[in-house]
Design a protein around this nucleic acid. Structure first.
Length: 503
RNA sequence: GCUCCGGUAGUAUAGUCCGGUCAAGUAUGGCGGCCUCUCGAGCCGCAGACCCGGGUUCAAAUCCCGGCCGGAGCACCA
């Protein structure tokens, strides 16, 4: 078997019963109550990837049918669209459930008419008690005429919140009580809780299983790919499909995806934003796509990761290191290299014999990408030159007498104190440094630096100096600071602000 | 508690349906070396796993039963 090389991709297993459908249709159906995060990546990428693989359709459907409990907000519709586009998963079609309320009414009426659903006006506790005892509630047996009468009352406001609910008839003796006569539509006082898109236009709203079940059929979804928390929802919906004489689509229920140390629950993210723990949706501590993007995690890396993880039902607990490995594969060949000196200290080199013209390549394996040059000219009688070097290299200054300034020349350390390092010129050839096993460090000429702030994944910052010419870097470019790590350019003014991705 | 689902190295995954070719493949991480003017990349090597117990069978990671562990659901949320 051929060895797996970079760029060679693992393939997804085939979709079950794909040949039974003339056109594969998948869908991603978020509730627009939060931005998307890595936890949604499995649904999105699997759906999109399978649609692409079978030359089918990938749908985006906003499931915004709860104006009351969920914090559905206008801003999230667009943020979700942006996230999908960034991920490279642009939907072929888009639907919004709050635009489809009348369609749901139509199907509800039909169910009521056919005696496959009923309107329950029982007290919630009372109903629960009965259903747990496998007993039908009194409303269940009423004739369709009564049901339709009640339906009209629901629609025209004769009932208020909580007083009536449409239930789908299932098997009231089903071993799983959750499946017995589940609720399909309820009343919401939209004068008090207006919907962000349609305000108080409707007061009867479908629940998840009803709206989703109807839509999957109407939109001809062939393969539902969603988290395994929906397994019992499939069981519930199957009863409704049977009432309508529809065939239930294929369903794949994958396990949850978690990353050690990341909050992947919407509620935690939203709570953190509210209480100010996180400054914004793209706070580097978050695993939202917005945050990952800001940190320089590429969509290709996420995509490959999800494909490798596959559609299994087991929960997956990844480490950040794992994601980084995928990202590094994407970034390494593309990222230009620059120097960044963390916690700068001044280095003086004396006895520099001549003027040096150094050429530093932007990428060691791709010289054709270009280079930058520095003219190193000794000053004064002492023939000295000054550089910024990093305090993180202090241990080297103390332990090794001989150090090589990458691409330049070798120096011998003569004095180290807390604010400066003194040295003198030793030799030029790299071979010499190699022979004497001198450590390599990076440097910036004292007048060629500009301040730079690195925002770390834990939101802390590291201050330092980078090369002045980084000012010309494009926003959002991802570069590598040699011996430091990959970073994304976030802001450029007098100071460069970058976000740290990983080593 | 009830109803489902699942358990392969640190992590993730292949193999499980249709028992043998699996003394278990791959990636990542770890370790060692080589290479490279980065602590990045690349190359080579090393260590590392079938949850446990029974059963069926000539043969079980794969089939059956029991146990243990983990997960999901049990909303007028999605």
């Amino acid at each position: 078997m051929a060895k797996k090389k970079v760029g060679e991709e693992k393939k997804l297993p085939p979709l079950p019963n794909a040949d039974r459908y003339s056109r594969i249709v998948t869908r991603f159906s978020p509730n627009p109550d939060c931005v998307l995060h890595l936890g949604s990546a499995r649904a999105i990428i699997l759906c999109h990837e399978y649609a692409k693989m079978y030359k089918g359709k990938f749908l985006l459907r906003f499931e915004d049918t709860d104006p009351r409990l969920k914090r559905t907000a206008l801003e999230f519709y667009d943020k979700i669209r942006d996230d999908l586009e960034w991920l490279g998963c642009k939907p072929d079609e888009e639907y919004i459930q709050s635009d489809r309320i009348l369609i749901y009414y139509e199907y509800a009426r039909k169910l009521l008419q056919d005696g496959n659903a009923y309107i329950c006006t029982c007290n919630r506790q009372e109903f629960r008690r009965r259903i747990l005892a496998k007993q039908p509630c009194p409303c269940r047996g009423s004739p369709p005429e009564t049901q339709l009468e009640r339906w009209d009352k629901m629609l025209n406001g004769a009932y208020s919140e909580g007083e009536a609910v449409v239930r789908i008839k299932t098997d009231i003796t089903h071993p799983n009580p959750a499946i017995r006569d589940w609720p399909a539509l309820r009343i919401i006082d939209t004068d008090r809780y207006p919907h962000p898109r349609v305000g108080n236009k409707y007061r009867v709203w479908p629940l998840y299983n009803f709206a989703c079940g109807i839509d999957d059929h109407l939109m001809e979804v062939t393969h539902i790919i969603r988290g395994k928390e929906h397994l019992t929802n499939q069981r519930r919906q199957e009863y409704m499909y049977k009432h309508f004489g529809w065939e239930y689509p294929e369903a794949i229920h994958y396990g949850r995806l978690k990353i050690t140390g990341a909050f992947l629950s919407k509620s935690k993210i939203i709570q953190g934003i509210r209480d100010g723990t996180f400054k914004s949706w793209d706070d580097p501590r978050l695993a939202t796509f917005l945050a990952l993007r800001r940190r320089g995690i590429t969509p290709e890396a996420i995509r490959q990761l999800i494909i490798d993880v596959g559609p299994k039902t087991v929960d997956v607990v990844l480490s950040w290191e794992n994601l980084y490995a995928y990202n590094r594969k994407v970034l390494d060949p593309k990222a230009d290299r620059y120097f960044f000196v963390e916690s700068p200290v001044q280095l003086t080199v004396k006895n520099v014999p001549k003027i040096f013209h150094v050429k530093l390549y932007l990428h060691p394996e791709h010289p054709e990408r270009g280079s930058r040059e520095y003219r190193i000219e000794p000053k004064n009688k002492t023939r000295e030159v000054q550089f910024w070097v990093s305090r993180t290299d202090y241990d080297k200054f103390k332990e090794e007498k001989l150090i090589r300034l990458m691409g330049l020349f070798n120096i011998e350390i003569t004095e180290v104190n807390s604010y400066a390092v003194e040295s003198h010129y030793h030799s030029e050839p790299y071979q010499e440094a190699k022979r004497l096993k001198a450590p390599l460090i990076h440097w910036i000429p004292i007048n060629a630096g500009m301040p730079c702030e690195v925002v770390m994944p834990d939101a802390s910052t590291k201050e330092g100096i980078t090369e002045k010419l980084c000012k010309k870097l494009r926003l959002n470019a991802i570069i590598q600071f040699e011996r430091f790590g990959f970073v994304r350019i976030d802001k450029v003014n007098g100071k460069l602000t970058v976000y740290y991705a990983h080593r």
